[in-house]
Amino acid sequence: MLFKEDEILTTNIINFAHRGAAGLYPENTMISFARALELGATGIETDVQVTKDGHLILIHDENLHRTAGVAAWVKDLTLEEVKSHEAGSWFHEDYRGEQIPTLEELLELVKSSDTIINLELKNGIVMYPDIEKKVIETVQRYEMSERVIISSFNHYSLVECKKLAPEIRTGILYMEGLYEPWDYAKRIGADALHANKFAVIPELVAAAAEQGVVYHAFTVNEQSEMKALIKAGVAGIITDYPDRLAELL
């Protein structure tokens, strides 16, 4: 499905690959990130947690059971223990041997490109001490502050990030029904609203834009929904299928 010429409002929309190309490859693995870029992603969205020995790893669940087949919590394992388990065969046998990557591995992959990285801090169930400081120091070490957006459902964490590094963008993750969220975003110093796709309508996008706040909608996998959100004026779309969005853009 392609736009007619007069229907295209902008192509300057960030194509965020959700956990990499998670609809096509095992989520939050290096192959998923690399293939997402090949499929046209201009951004990568991933989840950050902290191992027992203080390393930043990219995994959505607080427990390894779903993607690595081990009933153990990230917080209770060292990086070496995490790396001893493969995280690809749950998706398909072709990907057996894929590992849970570190944040450094992802930043190494994209450092020579202009890819935008959206790092979701997973500190709602497990309150990882100093996760904000650890992430920010790593981003700054790679000199990627201008290309990173830190998001979280824990908005206290976003306030802490802004205190530590005002130059790094932050995004408020929320599901639905947040009243005049642009005012809330400005109150806590956030730059973007990372809203569930059902909470994004043109009127809200326009009102937020007037206040200098942009919308990044998640998780959008159908081209009809992508097209509607592009028309609504969002600045970014988070999708499991970056190839589908790239086709529209």
Rank of each mutant, 00 (worst) to 15 (best):
V50G: 03
E105M: 12
T115P: 02
I149V: 15
V126I: 14
E146F: 00
L119S: 06
E143Y: 09
I136C: 09
G40Q: 06
I13P: 00
T51Y: 07
D76T: 12
Q223T: 15
L229H: 00
L64N: 08
N196L: 07
G233L: 04
N118R: 04
L121H: 01
E225F: 02
I238N: 01
W73A: 14
L37Q: 10
I57V: 15
I59K: 09
D47H: 03
P26A: 08
L77N: 06
D6A: 12
V70A: 14
I31W: 05
E225K: 11
Y142M: 01
L39G: 09
M30C: 08
V205F: 09
V74D: 01
E203H: 01
A34F: 06
I125C: 05
S157A: 04
E167C: 02
E80R: 09
H92I: 04
A209Q: 15
A71T: 11
I201T: 13
F91E: 07
L178V: 15
L24R: 13
I100K: 09
S112P: 00
I14F: 02
M1C: 11
I150M: 10
I100C: 09
H216R: 12
I149W: 07
A165L: 05
E180Y: 05
P101Y: 06
N12F: 06
N123A: 02
E108H: 07
I13H: 01
N221Y: 11
L79E: 06
A246L: 03
V220I: 12
G212T: 06
E104Q: 13
T138Q: 09
K75C: 12
A206Q: 14
E105L: 08
D53A: 12
T51R: 06
T138K: 12
L229I: 02
E176W: 09
V200W: 01
R66T: 15
A190L: 01
E81C: 08
E45Y: 05
L106A: 00
